[in-house]
Design a protein around this nucleic acid. Structure first.
Length: 263
DNA sequence: CCGACGGTATAGGCCCAACA
DNA sequence: TGTTGGGCCTATACCGTCGG
């Protein structure tokens, strides 16, 4: 079968793109060392590989033609806008995150609720939800760059263990990337899984949006990058990300305090 | 028959303790 | 000191059941 081409996908909806990719993927032979749970993933990755570079080049060309986000000012605005939208959405969800003291007392779901520690109950619920949702935000911010491809947002397919595919500025190899919040995010018990998921791709990267804490992931073959080292690969300035995140989190905290006082 | 609901499995987030 | 294993909470997908 011929390789899948970018023109084959161009006019299709996300769902149709996924269906076409999977129809190609099915006929791809999987090397015996790939474990069963990753076989489909391997086939999908192999199916889209031939068109990734062209797809990325088109994004870069399109970006150049209008206000390029690689320009510092445009980039700053794009990042701030995404963070602001995220904050808005999260702030709106705060009332639903905090259970009333009465509810918590009647049917406690964790130790803080059992003890009636309202401050801990609320801060725990909010910070956990926030950190979970921010995981998505890093992908959204990375997608600002034309050097980034999202299997889900661009093709409608899920590639296990891969959040984004990047091309380093000026390079032509697609790098299959797992993006976390911090180097320490991965727990020891999850390490073998990440290792397996990344190892099936010729070029892969274990990345963290911020360089906070120490690495929990090490591999002889899979490189790591955090903070500035990661963002610069896709042409985004780390300081702009950090600035926007500071504002965003402080805004969210202020909104929570206002909510609490208003209750 | 279908949608609501609830339980289960899985993945993602963070932190910490033990160990080499 | 870096690696590894474990624990807890949240969100989501999936699936079987139940009631309208």
């Amino acid at each position: 079968m011929n390789d899948l081409k970018i023109d084959d996908l161009r006019s299709l909806s996300l769902g149709d793109r996924a269906a076409l990719i999977d129809s190609y993927a099915k006929s791809i032979t999987v090397p015996p060392q790939i474990k069963p749970s990753l076989q489909t993933t391997y086939q999908r990755a192999t199916a889209i590989k031939p068109l990734l570079l062209d797809y990325c080049r088109e994004q870069i060309t399109a970006d150049r033609q209008s206000n390029s986000v690689l320009d510092r000012q445009n980039q700053s605005e794009a990042i701030a806008q995404k963070c602001h939208a995220f904050a808005q959405q999260f702030i709106d969800s705060i009332p639903s995150l905090v259970r009333s003291p009465r509810q918590a007392a009647e049917n406690p779901k964790n130790l803080y609720e059992l003890c009636g520690a309202t401050l801990f109950t609320a801060s725990n619920a909010i910070s956990r939800s926030l950190s979970t949702k921010m995981g998505q935000l890093w992908e959204d911010l990375a997608k600002i760059s034309p050097y980034t491809i999202s299997p889900e947002k661009d093709f409608g397919i899920k590639i296990t263990g891969i959040d984004i595919i990047i091309f380093e500025v000026g390079q032509t190899n697609p790098i299959f990337t797992q993006l976390k919040t911090t180097p320490g995010t991965l727990t020891g018990s999850q390490k073998p899984r990440s290792q397996e998921e990344l190892a099936i791709h010729e070029f892969s990267l274990f990345a963290a949006a911020f360089c906070l804490g120490t690495w929990n992931f090490s591999s002889p073959t899979i490189p790591r990058a955090c903070g500035q080292k990661f963002w610069s690969k896709i042409g985004i300035e780390y300081e702009l990300v950090e600035d926007s995140i500071k504002t965003m989190i402080l805004d969210i905290e202020a909104a929570y305090l206002a909510f609490q006082n208003g209750q």
